[in-house]
Amino acid sequence: MLDRFTMPLTHRPLQRLATPLHQQHITPDQVTFTAFLIGITALPLLAYEQYGWALLAIVLNRLGDGIDGALARLSGHSSDAGGFLDIGLDFVFYAAVVLGFALANPAQNALVAALLLFAFIGTGTSFLAFAIAAKQQAIERPHFPNKAFYYLEGLTEGTETVAALVMFCLFPAYFPTLATLFAIACLITTATRLWGGYWTLRRHNGH
């Protein structure tokens, strides 16, 4: 929901951060994978309730996720392969963070973590399934022209997800409540994406 507003604000700072990497001939895929390796450390950190360090790993991962796209545009190396790697590792990272909270306090967090993972499957599959169909039908993405995949909007997008992960780390005792609320928002996103994607494809096909 907020990505259309936050992405233009981050475009120029990310380009500045990407410029020295471009000058050192570092590739977008290298940044993507490095950011993932940093982000995945949040899993053991959360399991041992090191929430401050986990938050740092999450923030650095999300920063790298923005820099790799800026670097791809700067170097002209945008590709479907890079986009695939980026989105695939993103979903693994998101799931790892939720698993980390489940391991930190299984009695309190495990059930709601399972609910949130269920909701993540809905948002992820609805996003990717539509992206495949949109690619085949050559449907444009006017609000997010720099995305590797067609970006079907929803209540919970990248900005909201990052905000939720940060809140989880800042207020771990409230994870069950916060995660439940975010899971509900993700399920709403899944429903609206399925509905919107279905009718978008029907209209595009002339039905």
Rank of each mutant, 00 (worst) to 15 (best):
Q137C: 01
H22D: 08
A129W: 11
G69M: 11
I58Y: 09
S126W: 13
Y94Q: 14
F149G: 12
F120L: 15
T125V: 15
I67H: 10
G64V: 04
G64Q: 05
Q108K: 14
L152T: 10
H25E: 14
P44C: 00
L116D: 05
G100K: 07
Q137Y: 00
V98H: 04
L63P: 05
F101H: 06
L46G: 02
L46E: 02
L99T: 05
Q108I: 08
G83T: 05
I67G: 07
W53Y: 08
A72C: 10
E140M: 11
Q137W: 00
N146Q: 10
L17P: 02
T32M: 07
E49S: 15
A134D: 07
H77M: 14
A133E: 13
P44H: 00
F130A: 11
V97S: 02
H22P: 00
L128D: 01
S78T: 14
Q24F: 09
A104Y: 01
G122R: 07
F84G: 02
T123E: 09
I26L: 14
I26G: 10
P106W: 04
A47C: 07
L116K: 06
A102Y: 11
P106C: 08
A96Q: 11
H77W: 03
A54M: 01
I121T: 05
I132C: 06
S79G: 10
A70S: 15
G39Q: 01
S78M: 11
N61C: 04
F101W: 08
I58W: 09
E157I: 08
A138R: 03
I38L: 12
G39L: 00
Q50C: 04
R62N: 03
H22Q: 12
D80C: 06
